[in-house]
Computed example of a mutant assay.
Amino acid sequence: MTTVRTAPPAATTPGAGPAGRPPRGRGPVRRTLAYVSLLAVTLLVLLPLGWMISSSLKRDNEVFTTPIEWIPREFRWSNYVEIWEQIPLATYLGNSAFLAIVITFLQVLTGSFAAYGFAKVRFPGRDGLFLAYIATIAVPWQAYMVPQYILMQRAELIDTHLSIILLQAFGAFGVFLMRQYYLSIPDDLCEAARIDGLSEYGIYRRIILPLSKPALASLALLTFVNTWNDYMGPFIYLTSNDLWTVQLGLRSFVGQYQADYAMIMTGAVLSVLPVVVVFLFGQRYFIQGIATSGLKG
């Protein structure tokens, strides 16, 4: 007589389906809740921007009405024409764009090049030097603000764009970001290129840079936004109105026309618009670069 052995029942968890699988319908519900939560957070973040845009299309006495009127009674598109006549906004935007583009290019160039040395070139004291350089991020800007100003003053660079460009052409954060990304690139590629006779400059230009587009885009976007929104740097070093950035120009406009709320919001919208456009074009590379820059340390 033969006996038939039966397999033991599969282990299940309370509330789970066969073989430990979640019951049907729970996956779509969780996904829907996640999307609703993300949508709510997105709307909460965009709420101030929406109020600013709405206020820029109103009259001055309609900006702070209670309750808030999200849709203006009358869309005053003329605000976007009058703002150019009241202040030299084109000059301010041009100065901000010039500084942001030049400083972004220099920081991407210097940051990526220094990061290549710290990540792919072996030399004595490399790691210690890198730690010492990165430690400067923890030093507050106020600690060396006065020495920097004295240095620029003795160089006779006060009230010039060159002073801001020289002070912001290098950044420890950019070196750190690019080095973390370079560490995810196999060293075998560099070794093979060295065996083939390629110089370090050639490896950096022909191998590393083409593989680093996401990290380069991330660094460029962060630097551009930070430079565009910088207020203290231009406030300290720039005194001529022709050299002011849009942040200084809007602050001066607010001081002169404190009750012109709609026009102030119009200027704020125009100052934010370039940053939004740059982010929309580079968000794919930005997200990819940030996600992969911290994989290897």
Rank of each mutant, 00 (worst) to 15 (best):
T2H: 04
T3F: 05
R5Q: 11
T6A: 07
P9C: 01
A11M: 12
T12L: 04
P14T: 10
P14H: 08
G15F: 03
G17E: 09
G17Q: 04
P18H: 04
G20D: 01
R21P: 00
R24V: 10
R26Q: 04
G27F: 13
V29G: 02
T32H: 11
Y35S: 03
Y35H: 13
V36H: 01
L38Q: 07
L39D: 09
T42S: 14
L43P: 05
L43T: 06
L46H: 11
P48C: 01
P48H: 05
G50I: 11
M52Y: 06
I53G: 09
S55A: 15
S56R: 00
L57E: 03
K58M: 05
N61H: 09
V63R: 00
T65R: 12
T65P: 00
T66W: 15
T66M: 05
E69C: 00
I71E: 09
I71A: 12
P72A: 07
F75H: 13
R76T: 08
R76P: 02
V81L: 15
I83K: 06
I87H: 14
L89E: 02
N95L: 11
F98C: 06
A100D: 09
V102F: 14
V102A: 12
T104Y: 14
T110A: 13
F113N: 03
F113G: 01
Y116F: 15
Y116G: 02
F118E: 02
F118D: 03
K120G: 05
V121M: 13
R122W: 06
G128L: 14
G128P: 00
L129G: 11
L129H: 01
L131Q: 11
A132R: 00
I134T: 13
I137A: 07
P140M: 04
W141K: 15
M145T: 11
M145P: 07
I150M: 12
L151K: 10
Q153S: 15
A155S: 11
T160Q: 10
L162K: 12
L162D: 01
I164H: 03
L167C: 05
G171P: 05
A172K: 03
A172L: 04
M178Y: 09
R179F: 05
R179Q: 06
Q180N: 15
L183H: 10
S184V: 08
L189N: 09
I195F: 12
L198E: 12
L198V: 13
S199T: 15
S199F: 08
S199H: 09
I203A: 06
P210M: 07
S212Q: 02
S212P: 07
K213A: 04
A215F: 04
A215H: 03
A215P: 06
L219R: 11
A220F: 02
V225W: 02
V225T: 13
N226V: 01
N226T: 13
N229L: 10
M232W: 12
M232I: 14
M232Q: 09
G233R: 14
T239N: 14
N241W: 03
L243A: 11
T245V: 04
Q247I: 07
L248D: 02
L250K: 08
R251S: 13
Q256T: 13
Q258C: 00
Y261H: 14
A262T: 10
I264A: 08
A268F: 08
S271A: 14
V272M: 15
L273N: 06
V276Y: 05
V277S: 00
V278R: 09
F279W: 01
Q283W: 06
Q283F: 09
R284W: 04
R284M: 00
I287D: 02
I287A: 09
G289N: 07
A291Y: 03
L295R: 15
G297L: 07
